[in-house]
Design a protein around this nucleic acid. Sequence first.
DNA 1: GTATTGATCTTCT
DNA 2: GAAGATCAATACA
Length: 164
Amino acid sequence: MDGVGGPIVEAEAYAPDDPASHAFRGMTARNAAMFGPAGRLYVYRSYGIHWCVNVVCGPPGVGAAVLVRSLEPVHGIETMRSRRGRDPLATGPGNVGQALGATSAQNGEPAVLHPPDRIRRVETSARIGITKGVERPWRFFDPDSGAVSRPISSAARGSRRTHA
DNA sequence: GTATTGATCTTCT
DNA sequence: GAAGATCAATACA
């Protein structure tokens, strides 16, 4: 989309039998794209103000996808900057959606993916921002990249839910 | 520096 | 009517 993008350095996996997944309770009008063929985009509105971008990765009818949490700004940096107006250009799901200019118009569209620019180290950790299925360590990120929202799961901002 | 709340809206129960 | 895969600004220590 618009030539903006960059290497994905943080992502989370969501499976059909995953209580945290939008596809957990079956197909609905919103998550229909998750049940489409692999390589499509699934874009949804988060908390009413953010657009989160997923890449469908399962066979049609399954309902599996990967949430793009952050990427390194490489292409179309100026465009991202004008769209964001803030420093972290594409760090965090909502920010990625905004930087890419993703809206419901991109929902179900084919994703444009490229091979990695280099071999990247990959760490795993528990997923972030969810209330169910937290025990599944299905967050994948590159600890060597500065664009990752949180290098390692720690108590810094882990549960900023009301009280602890 | 750390903790907490506000903004804002679609979808599901 | 409530929840939700969030971000950013403000309040307080």
